[in-house]
Write a protein that binds this DNA or RNA. Structure first.
Length: 463
DNA sequence: ATAGGGTTAG
């Protein structure tokens, strides 16, 4: 009886724990009360510690070299794997503990695999995912819907695995809106948006009712396709079916209308949202919408309004804002906002932010400044940055420099078709017909298909 | 006593 009370005591202490210092005190209590090998308490310790990023600390205690292993059980390992799978940086540790579990002959169950597969998805390890799939099959967990859905999600998250996801999905005996949403989301992620829409139609034919999450995904497919007609039909569907207008669904509608060109409709939807429901995503979607529709000044006022509303912009907001400055030719504003982002908001610029700045300077004709900016960047320029520089050079009739950079690009990515198109168009501008033919030959030699129709027209324009 | 899909960019 005393033991039970002590266990309850430890569990309720853990429930209230919200910092590492409290955790160490509770840990001392656990040892004192003789519960350092109690799987239930250790599981609770694990899940609680993952809430304040102390999972590594908790596991070093649970799995210390001198700890006895007889208490290791499935539930404890499941919790450890789940906690690690939910971290940003230590997903591999989830796999490590899954392997530990197997080597200690602790049997995984149907709860184990969704966690393990989530970790595989997070680290995009297809071959590991396939191995886990094999174990799932051998152990007979394949019919479990949670396991299957996690499997689909895993294959969709690993690049070039989509057909494996389709296979798992097709073989499911019973599907739910979760399975369909997982698959639709997988297509959207792979930019196979038409497939996503096709599957959504099929879902209705088969008679599985979509939910709010399905609709968010379908809207992002519409946004990707840029089809306003399709987007509007989905909007009517949402209205007719009386879906709950959650923030995420409103945001998806705003994003869809903005990307499909009806930015005024996006603005109306945004204004109709209760102020308290607007999130940084709502604002950012609208700022992007303005930027992409040539309304840079409105994007800037929205950003200022957002600050007034007391919402902190994130790194994505700044990509939108800098894009707006770039498209509107607002060089000084762009430079000021870049500084604000770094020095006031403490956001470490990513390659995308640098790309915006190169674009900003380049479009304004400041080629030299753009090149100096790239030189000073603390990160290595990627092909997007180089391509931006090339188009800047071409626009400013600095064809020699453009040619030099493009040759570098080709040296780095010899199989990338668009690089040859760039070089070809530079030579077309230079009227070096002989060289242009050489480029075509080099492409054929490397087994690269002919350039697409639209590109050919563009090249012929140059003629 | 632990489970599956989601919004902005890339």
């Amino acid at each position: 009886m005393y033991k039970r009370a002590a266990e309850q005591n430890c569990l309720s202490l853990l429930q209230l724990c919200n910092s590492l210092s409290k955790l160490t005190q509770i840990q001392a209590q656990i040892i004192k009360l003789g519960h350092k090998n109690n799987p239930l308490i250790l599981s609770k310790l694990t899940s609680i510690s993952s809430r304040f990023d102390a999972i590594n600390y908790a596991c070093s205690f649970i799995f210390s070299p001198e700890s006895e292993t007889h208490y290791y059980d499935t539930f404890l390992f499941n919790t450890v794997i789940e906690s690690y799978a939910g971290t940003a940086k230590f997903k591999r540790a989830a796999i490590h503990y899954y392997k530990e579990m197997l080597s200690h002959c602790v049997e995984p169950n149907n709860y184990t695999y969704p966690f393990v597969l989530k970790a595989c998805a997070g680290i995009k390890d297809l071959s590991l995912g396939k191995t886990v799939h094999g174990s799932v099959w051998k152990l007979g967990f394949s019919p479990d819907p949670h396991v299957s859905n996690a499997m689909i999600h895993m294959y969709c998250s690993c690049e070039s695995g989509i057909e494996f996801a389709e296979k798992v999905f097709d073989e499911m005996a019973e599907t739910s809106s979760v399975s369909w949403s997982t698959m639709i989301g997988g297509y959207v992620r792979c930019r196979m948006s038409s497939e996503a829409i096709r599957l959504f139609r099929k879902m209705q034919v088969v008679g599985v009712r979509p939910d709010e999450i399905t609709m968010v995904l379908v809207l992002s497919a519409c946004a990707d396709l840029g089809s306003l007609e399709l987007g509007k039909s989905i909007e009517s569907f949402i209205e007719n079916e009386k879906f709950e207008m959650r923030t995420e669904l409103c945001n998806a509608l705003i994003d869809m209308f903005a990307k499909c060109g009806d930015v005024d409709k996006a603005l109306r939807l945004f204004k109709d949202m209760p102020t308290s429901k607007r999130t940084v995503v709502s604002w950012t979607s609208l700022i992007f919408g303005m930027a992409l529709n040539g309304r840079g000044l409105e994007a800037i006022s929205l950003f200022e309004e957002m600050k007034q509303a007391g919402l902190g912009p994130d790194e994505v907001t700044f990509i939108g804002l800098l894009t707006a400055c770039s498209h509107a030719g607002l060089v000084e504003e762009g430079e000021t906002y870049f500084d604000l982002m770094v020095n006031y908001y403490g956001i470490v610029p990513r390659i995308e932010h640098y790309g915006c700045m190169v674009d900003l300077l380049g479009r304004a004709g400041l080629v030299k400044k753009a090149l100096e900016f790239v030189d000073r960047m603390p990160v290595a320029p990627n092909h997007v940055i180089w391509r931006t520089l090339v188009s800047v050079c071409c626009g400013q009739d600095k064809l020699d420099l453009g040619e030099k950079i493009t040759k570098e690009l080709i040296a780095n990515e010899p199989m990338e078709e668009s690089n040859y198109v760039l070089l070809s168009s530079i030579y077309a501008k230079m009227s070096f017909w002989g060289k242009k033919t050489t480029v075509r030959k080099a492409m054929t030699k490397k087994g690269i298909r002919k350039v697409s129709g639209s590109t050919v027209i563009e090249l012929d324009d140059g003629v």
